[in-house]
Measured scan of single mutants.
Amino acid sequence: MEVRTIKVFTTVDNINLHTQVVDMSMTYGQQFGPTYLDGADVTKIKPHNSHEGKTFYVLPNDDTLRVEAFEYYHTTDPSFLGRYMSALNHTKKWKYPQVNGLTSIKWADNNCYLATALLTLQQIELKFNPPALQDAYYRARAGEAANFCALILAYCNKTVGELGDVRETMSYLFQHANLDSCKRVLNVVCKTCGQQQTTLKGVEAVMYMGTLSYEQFKKGVQIPCTCGKQATKYLVQQESPFVMMSAPPAQYELKHGTFTCASEYTGNYQCGHYKHITSKETLYCIDGALLTKSSEYKGPITDVFYKENSYTTTIK
């Protein structure tokens, strides 16, 4: 009895394709271990004539594949690729409408935090270190965002349907971005203890939790000093293409032309909904596939993004 075979390709990165001759009487799992086709788990399936010449994702289970996976995804987590594939199996079914010149995501599976993050990423200057993220990001900007969303979920250790947080998501993504040249110098002034300067680099240099107003941050924000008295913390120097200011959701007025974009969060910790506000020729609110415009805006804002380049204080 002759062994019926077909020729397929296996890959971990969709760049390096490895030619395989597979036995049609055995499952993919018996031949390769966990195997995925377009995100779908085909591990328990036997090869079919229609699979001839198709590319299958496999887990990096030998040295060659491990090197290829690390170079593309910059992670050695053995569960990463499987999590990416199972997320992709959902995100490829989502709709990605162009809204006001940006790629958004039609609401499904509690994905409003991903839509808000995706919209924000198209408006701030950011370059990702893992080629996987950078490639998928370019495709997302062009309207094909399924891979990018699935990668975000995998890097953030999230599953489809789980509630997510924009600030946490951005923080994970910033860790995989090139923020080497970003720098922030802060000064804390206390009447009792004097003053202390701190220099922050990388992710810490672009994120701040405690106030939404970048102007206020430049002037000074009140913080408790270690001595128990009130101290003032203010920005001395900022070198970065953008800054992200966050605070627990509270009524906040966004003035046209003073910011790049913002995240609105309605609801409580267990259950809520994100919308995205962007400042173009007027203010726009993007909620999944829905767009509304207004000249002014007041609502429960939790993150505001500002364009920056270089700032030095005039406070002496």
Rank of each mutant, 00 (worst) to 15 (best):
V58N: 04
K54N: 13
K93G: 08
D23E: 11
L151Q: 08
Y57I: 11
Q122A: 02
A132I: 07
K275T: 11
L65V: 09
Y208M: 07
G33Y: 06
E204G: 11
Y138T: 14
C261Y: 00
Y57P: 04
V160S: 02
D135K: 08
Y73E: 08
C225T: 01
K218P: 01
Y96F: 14
K106E: 15
G39H: 09
T120E: 05
Q30L: 11
V42L: 13
K307A: 13
W94M: 03
Y265E: 00
A132G: 07
Q197E: 13
Y137D: 02
W94V: 07
F148V: 01
A115F: 07
A136R: 02
V99N: 09
N178G: 08
I45W: 14
T226E: 12
T43I: 07
Q175W: 03
T258H: 13
Y96S: 02
L118Q: 03
Y297H: 03
T313E: 08
D165E: 05
F217Q: 02
T91I: 00
D41S: 12
Y57G: 04
L163P: 15
L59C: 13
F9M: 13
K293I: 10
S104I: 12
C112M: 05
Q230A: 13
Q237I: 08
D303I: 02
S86E: 14
A177M: 08
K201R: 15
E296W: 11
S86Q: 14
I45R: 12
H273D: 05
Q251Y: 14
C182I: 05
G39V: 07
L212I: 07
F259A: 01
K158L: 04
P248A: 13
V189Q: 08
K46V: 14
E215I: 01
T278H: 08
I286V: 07
Y265W: 04
S246Y: 00
P78M: 09
V188N: 03
N14K: 13
T282K: 09
N61Q: 14
A177T: 07
N157K: 14
P78Q: 12
K233Y: 04
Y84E: 02
A231Y: 04
K218D: 01
L254C: 04
T232M: 12
D62P: 02
K316L: 15
G161W: 06
C285I: 15
T35M: 14
Y137R: 03
L173C: 06
K255Y: 04
F259T: 02
V42D: 06
N16Y: 06
S263A: 12
K106G: 10
K233H: 12
Y36Q: 07
F174C: 02
L88S: 04
F128Q: 02
A117V: 13
R141H: 09
A262Q: 03
S310C: 08
Q31A: 14
N178P: 02
N49M: 13
G202S: 02
M24I: 12
T292D: 09
K298C: 15
T159A: 14
E52N: 11
L17T: 11
Y57Q: 08
I223H: 10
H18Q: 09
P131Q: 00
E204M: 06
T116V: 15
R4W: 10
V22D: 03
S310P: 08
H90R: 11
A108R: 05
T302D: 03
N100W: 07
D287H: 00
N309V: 15
Y96E: 04
Q195F: 10
C112L: 07
Q195E: 15
F242S: 02
G257E: 07
G228V: 00
T313P: 09
Y297V: 04
S25T: 15
Q238P: 00
C225A: 05
Q251H: 12
V206C: 04
I301K: 00
V221D: 04
E168A: 15
V243E: 00
G202T: 01
Q238C: 03
Q197Y: 04
E68A: 05
Q196S: 13
E168W: 14
F56M: 12
T11V: 01
L283T: 08
V188A: 05
E215W: 03
V3I: 11
A231F: 01
D63L: 07
S50N: 12
C225Y: 01
D63C: 08
